[in-house]
Design a protein around this nucleic acid. Structure first.
Lengths: 217, 217
DNA sequence: ACGCTTTTCCACGATACTGTTGACAGAATT
DNA sequence: AATTCTGTCAACAGTATCGTGGAAAAGCGT
């Protein structure tokens, strides 16, 4: 649904887009502010007024940099999620044992959530199935990235099932969802600098999923 | 913020409240419809118009049964969550081993999610920390129930740590969050009649958390 | 100091939602 | 048959939001 140069504002933006100077820097500033606001109020619950207020500027000024709330959201989330999906693929395809792959992937995901805090959580909270049709192209892309991560987990578990290094305690899909649940649910409790670090959480979750809680005695 | 009998509508409702007839039945119908709509669009994303449309009635008619969107939400969620919290308490206080407690609690929670589908998921999706101050009393109550469930898990794990039936792989709080994450994240993928049943999922998650994936060889 | 460009703001129209009001139709009651 | 009760509806006011237009302000190059 890209507008075909709707008179002004859009044209200004287009003009500033190619020859980018401090324009990109300001864009980034706005993104940072938006990340904070979206994290506090959720994407759908947050208004552009709130984002503008966070920076102490007028709401209309935002439209000089982003044509809509959706574009702002995309600019924020897309790149990081792409990185994350690539990371998952890389670990899944690496030539180590399924056990180690799983351990590393769990840890890496949690660390990524911590390092990019709170960016990925904003994305995680959004349920892509409910995104309006108007953004279905973008939504499909994002869902694809999501699926890549899911599939990385599923593949690893299936490999482990096949070489018998992992016990078959349920369908690979279900186990993968469980592990992803541990990781993704962290958006409700993880706060950097409070409680365990992301590394610690990642290690704990990896240990929980792989070795379990039961002691051998 | 309870209104003090705002003329009409409220008075009618008050009049119909004590002597309940088919009034309660219709209330339930509205609840059922609201559950569907809230599940599709999320609570904050859903409008009362949508709920009314689901039933093919006028939006204003809803106000004959519920004074606000919030009251509707409360009517839907409170009782079930209270039951769930009580269930968690009961299992945590039962005189069986921590291992069995954990297994049963995990399974019971997942089954409850399935049986009450999709009601509990509507609640899970709401992040209570972001509820407006206007409902802070209700919000506190609900957070309390949530905490009861959390604490049930934490206590069980700590018991297991102390009697050494569970390995100390991380703080009890962190492990509890991991398990709750597995369970709660099911709101993103669980659909009754599709894929694994809630019972199966519960068993798988309990096995995953307790015995882990790694095979002994 | 003067133009020109970049950036910001004030004001507007459009839309959507909430909660309320007073009136209306059918059933129940008298 | 008249009247109350129950449930419904169309319409209104109030608020919040989004995206746009045009004008003001700030930079900066000469």
């Amino acid at each position: 649904m890209t507008k075909k140069a709707s008179v002004i504002g859009q044209r200004r933006k287009a003009a500033s887009e190619d020859s980018s100077a401090s324009y990109q820097a300001r864009r980034k500033e706005i993104c940072e502010a938006a990340i904070q606001v979206f994290h506090r109020q959720g994407f759908s619950g947050a208004s552009l007024s709130a984002v503008a207020a966070e920076l102490g500027i007028d709401r209309a000024s935002l439209y000089y940099y982003f044509s809509s709330k959706d574009e702002l959201f995309d600019a924020i989330t897309t790149s990081v999620l792409e990185e994350n999906a690539a990371l998952a693929r890389r670990i899944a395809d690496s030539p180590i044992s399924p056990r180690r792959k799983l351990r590393e992937l769990v840890a890496a995901m949690m660390v990524s959530y911590g390092e990019n805090y709170p960016l990925l959580y904003i994305y995680i909270r959004e349920d892509l199935r409910q995104v309006a049709d108007s953004r279905s192209d973008w939504s499909k892309h994002m869902r694809g990235l999501n699926r890549q991560i899911e599939n990385a987990f599923i593949e690893i578990i299936e490999q482990g099932y096949e070489d018998r290094s992992l016990r078959r305690i349920g369908s690979a899909r279900m186990v993968a969802y469980g592990i992803l649940g541990m990781l993704n649910w962290s958006h409700r409790w993880y706060r950097p600098g409070k409680g365990e670090s992301a590394e610690e959480a990642g290690r704990t979750f990896a240990e929980l999923a792989l070795a379990g809680l039961e002691s051998p005695y």
